[in-house]
Design a protein around this nucleic acid. Structure first.
Lengths: 174, 174
DNA sequence: ATCCCTGCAAAGGGTTTGCAGACGC
DNA sequence: GCGTCTGCAAACCCTTTGCAGGGAT
C-alpha cells in the first residue's frame, strides 16, 4: 500500500553530486544542494526563471547567477538534462532515475509529452559507427498538433503579422 | 559533362513561394525573393546574421528586420527549416529539393554532419498514432565527438569556470 | 588564511517591436 | 490611394560577466 518514496532519487542524486564535486575539487555549498533538491522535487520540465521563482517563493535565498552556474554543473555530471525546445529559452529536467525518453511538443498549446522507443538507440549506435562519431547523447523532438479538446491556439497558422501568438507564452511547458 | 543546374531548385522554390504568397494574400516584394534566392544559392546551414552580411556584401540592401520577417514566412511555407542546435542562435537551411535528413553535431568543434535513416520516419508515425498526435515534423540531433584530426577544443570538458570554451564560438556550423 | 562561490547589477547578444516612409496591389 | 512591408533603432529578454564580500576547505 505504499509507493517508492520520491526521496530515493533525490538521495541518490545527492550522493552522485557529492562524489562529482569531490572529484572535481568543487565546493559543496548549501546553494548547490538546495538547487539539486528543488529540481528533484519538481516534476517535468522547467526553465531557469521558474526554478528561481519557485525557490524564492519558498523563501530560499538564491541568485539567478547561482542558479545558472549550478545548472551548468548539474548538466555536466548528467544529473540534469538541458533542452532547447525550439525557443530561445532553455528548459531543464532531472535525469537521474528517469527512464531515457524523448519528446512530443504541440505547436499549438506547447504541451510536452514523452515517449520511449528503443529503436532510437539503435539508430544512434549505427549512425555513430558509420560516421565515426562518438555519440554521447541525442535530442529527438516530434512537433505537431495534440488532440486535446482544450488545446489553445488551435489552427493559428497565421504567423504573417508580427504577433505574440506562438512566441510570447510565458509557460510553454505545462 | 554537365551537372544538374543548381538553379532548378531555386526556380521551383520561387514558384512555390509565389503561389504561397498569392494564396495568403501577401505581397511579392523584391526583398522576399532576393532573400529566397540568397538562401537557395547557399549550401548548408546559416544564421540570420550570416545571411544578412552575405547579402550586404553583395551590395543588396536589406534590413535585419526584413530578413527575420521573410525567414518566418519561408519557414511557414516549408521552403526553409529552422533549427535550434542547442545554442541561443537559430540556424536555418533550405528544405525544398533537399532530401530529408537529420544531424550530428560535434560538441568539441561544432562541426555539423548529416545522415538519413528511414527508421526515424517509422518511429514518428508509430508514436504519433499511439499518442494521438498529428506529428508535422521532427528534430533529431546526435551530440558527440567527431574523429577529425584537427577537431578543435578536443577534450575541453571543464565547464566549471565561467569560460567561453563551448559557447562563444562565432561560426559553430562549419 | 586562501580563493572559490555567491549575489548583485550591468553588459551582452539575438530577436522583436514601434513608427514613419515606401511601394505592391 | 490604401494598407502592408521595409528599414531603422530602440526595446526586450535570456544569459553572461565583473566585482566585492562571504564562506568552504
Amino acid at each position: 500500500m505504499q509507493q517508492a518514496p520520491p526521496q530515493s532519487n533525490l538521495e541518490s542524486a545527492r550522493m552522485i553530486f557529492m562524489a562529482y564535486l569531490e572529484r572535481k575539487s568543487l565546493r559543496k555549498t548549501p546553494e548547490r544542494f538546495a538547487i539539486l533538491e528543488e529540481i528533484y522535487n519538481r516534476a517535468d520540465h522547467f526553465d531557469v526563471d521558474e526554478l528561481y521563482v519557485s525557490m524564492k517563493n519558498k523563501n530560499y535565498q538564491v541568485s539567478r547567477a547561482t542558479v545558472y552556474n549550478t545548472l551548468d554543473v548539474l548538466v555536466d555530471c548528467d544529473l540534469v538534462t538541458k533542452h532547447q525546445f525550439g525557443k530561445n529559452l532553455a528548459q531543464y529536467e532531472k535525469s537521474y532515475g528517469y527512464r531515457q525518453h524523448d519528446h512530443l511538443i504541440c505547436t499549438d498549446c506547447h504541451k510536452v509529452m514523452e515517449f520511449c522507443d528503443p529503436r532510437v538507440q539503435n539508430i544512434q549506435n549505427m549512425v555513430g559507427d558509420m560516421l565515426k562519431f562518438n555519440v554521447m547523447h541525442h535530442s529527438l523532438i516530434f512537433y505537431g498538433a495534440c488532440a486535446r479538446d482544450n488545446c489553445e491556439n488551435r489552427g493559428s497558422t497565421d504567423r504573417q503579422t508580427r504577433s505574440k501568438d506562438a512566441q510570447g507564452v510565458q509557460n510553454p511547458v505545462g
